[in-house]
């Protein structure tokens, strides 16, 4: 029994990080209509930048974290300004190809600087010693990651619901032209969306890096966020968050169960996509995706 609880717990943690990255993905899709295939690379580059600060330059964690956030904001702005903005109005397939190209470029940059070896954060962000919860040892990394992700998700939820910029982002998502007629600067909203996406991915990268260590495989994490986003409905923020957590838990459970019962390996990589296909067969809009409002 304890084994399964462990699986669920680590699934929840993994899922909350999925949720965070999925949030970034959904924000870009929702406000700019772009499917960003470079999301995983944002995560990777954030994780490596932080690694460079902490391990190579011996910057204290707090400042390394802050610097990483600033770096991500700049990265998001640059990508939007230099690569995506000139593409506004081009066919959607060209824009998707551009993000795929961007993902290769970012990955090569990371590999050129830091190599392909697995690296670990040293010192780690959170203390090693596990904490006893209801008689079960839970490592602090897990607790903190889960907590931090949840807090961020709630903060973003509030941001979209109540802040002026958040409401404007949702308005822009509905129609660029009408948003323009309100005096909302659509360009600024796009830039903001890329910034947020880049920042949440970097935070996700740092958290996952503290759990598993970092290497260039980290970018696959971005790919695995797809099922989470699609499960929740591509354009729903709440859906992305819930989708992430569901996928994380299901992935871990199916992996653990199949491994112990049948000795099957590597289910972890496949499980999210199996779930994805099943979900799409049942609910093509995702759990929370907008079905067009139709007045009859």
């Amino acid at each position: 029994m304890e084994f399964y609880i462990q699986l669920v717990v680590s699934g929840l943690v993994l899922g909350s990080i999925y949720a965070l990255v999925a949030l970034g993905f959904a924000i870009i899709y929702k406000s700019t209509g772009v499917v960003n295939f470079a999301q995983g690379e944002f995560l990777m580059i954030g994780a490596y930048f932080c690694f460079g600060m902490v391990v190579q330059f011996r910057v204290p964690w707090f400042w390394a974290f802050v610097l990483t956030l600033i770096f991500s904001i700049v990265l998001g702005l640059l990508v939007e300004r230099l690569i995506l903005r000139p593409m506004i109005g081009e066919p959607i397939i060209s824009i998707i190809m551009v993000t795929i190209g961007l993902s290769s470029v970012l990955r090569s940059i990371v590999q050129a600087i830091w190599g392909t070896q697995i690296q670990v954060y040293n010192p780690p962000l959170f203390p090693d010693a596990p904490i006893q919860i209801a008689g079960m040892p839970v490592s602090q990394v897990y607790l903190w990651s889960f907590g931090l992700s949840l807090v961020l998700l709630v903060l973003f939820g509030l941001f979209f619901k109540y802040s002026k910029a958040g409401v404007a982002m949702r308005a822009t998502a509905f129609s660029n032209q009408v948003a323009l007629s309100m005096g909302i600067s659509v360009k600024q909203i796009f830039a903001l969306a890329w910034c947020i996406a880049s920042v949440v991915s970097a935070i996700g990268g740092i958290l996952i890096g503290n759990i598993n260590g970092i290497n260039s495989q980290l970018a696959h994490f971005g790919l695995k966020v797809f099922p989470a986003v699609i499960l929740g409905g591509l354009d729903s923020i709440l859906g992305a968050a819930l989708g992430g957590i569901i996928i994380g838990v299901l992935e871990n459970l199916s992996d653990g169960i199949l491994k112990t019962l049948f000795g099957l390996q590597g289910i972890k990589e496949v499980a999210p996509f199996v779930i994805l296909v099943v979900i799409l067969m049942i609910k093509p809009y995702g759990l929370f995706g907008t079905e067009e409002i139709e007045r009859v």
Binding site: V167, R170, A171, F174, S175, V178, S181, T290
Partner: peptide
Amino acid sequence: GRRVFEDL
């Protein structure tokens, strides 16, 4: 044609 933000 009104053009309100339907999901707000």
